[in-house]
C-alpha cells in the first residue's frame, strides 16, 4: 500500500469517528501524491483547526498545524519564501469559508501555486455539531434545533468567482475519481481548490437523520452527478462533480520574482 510511506503510523488509528469521510480524503491524497512521485521532503502541508485539519498530523511531510481559518495565510508565507515546495492546504468547510473566508477568496484571487482541499462535511464536528456556512437551509444542527435558516455557500462558484485557476468537486464516495482530481489539482500551476464532500455520520448525519456512514455514502452517490450530465438537466437539485475550471494565469511567486528582478535593476 502506498499509504504506509506517507503517513505517520505511530499516530494511527486516527481520532476520526468510524465512517468519517476525512479518512477517505487522506487515503485518496496519499495515492495522488504517490502517482505524482513527489518526495516527502518537498511537500508542506498547512492546516488550521477542526476535525479535517487533524490530517496534517497524520501525514509524514513538513506539516504546520496553525490557527483557525488562517492556514492559507501561513501557507502563502511558506510558499513566498520557498516557491520550490509543494503546498497542500487541507481545510474544513467552516475553517475555509467562515473563519478563513477572507483568506480564502484573496488566496484564490492571487493565484498563488498551492492546493486548497476543502473537506466539506457541512458541520463543525470537533466543537460539537454547530451549523457551518455549508450546512444549508433547512438542516439541523446543535445550534439550529428548529432548523437552520442560513443559505449555504457554493464553494465551487465562490472559488471560481474569486479567480481560482483550478476548481473541482469530488466526493468521498467516488474514490476512483478522487485521487485523479487531487493529482491534477496538485500538478496545476496556480491556486487550486478541490471541494471534497465527506460524510460526518456523528454530527451531521445524526442530526439530520441521514443514517449510518454507509447510508451517507449512498447519499453522495445518489445526490451527485458528473458535470453536464443528462441527469442534471432532468433533476436540477443534483450536485455536479468534476473539474469546473482549469485555466492558465500568471502565478504569484513567479510574478513577484519578476518584480524583484526589475527592482534590482532599478527600473
Amino acid at each position: 500500500m502506498p499509504a504506509r510511506e506517507y503517513i505517520r503510523e505511530r499516530f494511527f488509528p486516527h481520532i476520526w469517528c468510524p465512517g468519517c469521510g476525512h479518512g477517505i480524503v487522506l487515503n485518496g491524497l496519499v495515492r495522488a501524491i504517490e502517482n505524482i512521485g513527489l518526495k516527502k521532503n518537498d511537500i508542506v502541508m498547512v492546516s488550521g483547526i477542526g476535525c479535517s485539519s487533524r490530517i496534517a498530523g497524520y501525514m509524514d511531510f513538513h506539516t504546520l498545524h496553525t490557527i483557525h481559518g488562517r492556514a492559507l495565510a501561513f501557507a502563502i508565507g511558506v510558499k513566498m519564501s520557498r516557491p520550490d515546495l509543494t503546498l497542500l492546504v487541507p481545510m474544513g468547510d467552516g475553517d475555509a469559508l467562515s473563519i478563513g473566508g477572507n483568506h480564502f477568496i484573496h488566496a484564490c484571487r492571487r493565484n498563488i501555486d498551492m492546493t486548497a482541499i476543502v473537506m466539506n462535511n457541512r458541520v463543525y464536528g470537533m466543537t460539537g455539531g454547530q451549523y457551518s456556512p455549508l450546512s444549508g437551509y433547512g438542516t439541523m444542527a446543535t445550534t439550529a434545533p428548529y432548523t437552520n435558516i442560513d443559505q449555504a455557500f457554493d464553494v465551487v462558484s465562490m472559488a471560481t468567482a474569486a479567480g481560482a485557476t483550478f476548481v473541482a468537486r469530488a466526493t468521498a464516495y467516488h474514490v476512483q475519481q478522487l485521487p485523479g482530481i487531487l493529482e491534477e489539482a496538485i500538478r496545476h500551476k496556480g491556486f487550486s481548490v478541490v471541494e471534497v464532500m465527506t460524510p460526518c455520520p456523528t454530527y451531521f448525519g445524526r442530526k439530520n437523520k441521514e443514517g449510518s456512514a454507509v447510508d451517507m455514502m449512498e447519499n453522495l452517490k445518489t445526490r451527485t452527478t458528473p458535470i453536464g450530465s443528462k441527469a442534471k438537466q432532468e433533476n436540477p437539485s443534483l450536485i455536479e462533480r468534476g473539474i469546473f475550471v482549469k485555466k492558465e494565469l500568471p502565478e504569484y511567486c513567479a510574478e513577484y520574482q519578476r518584480i524583484v528582478e526589475r527592482a534590482m535593476k532599478g527600473k
Partner: peptide, 11 residues
C-alpha cells in the same frame, strides 16, 4: 480494491 480505496482508516 474499492474496499482499500474507501477505507477511512487505511485498515
Amino acid at each position: 480494491k474499492l474496499c482499500e480505496l474507501r477505507c477511512p482508516d487505511l485498515a
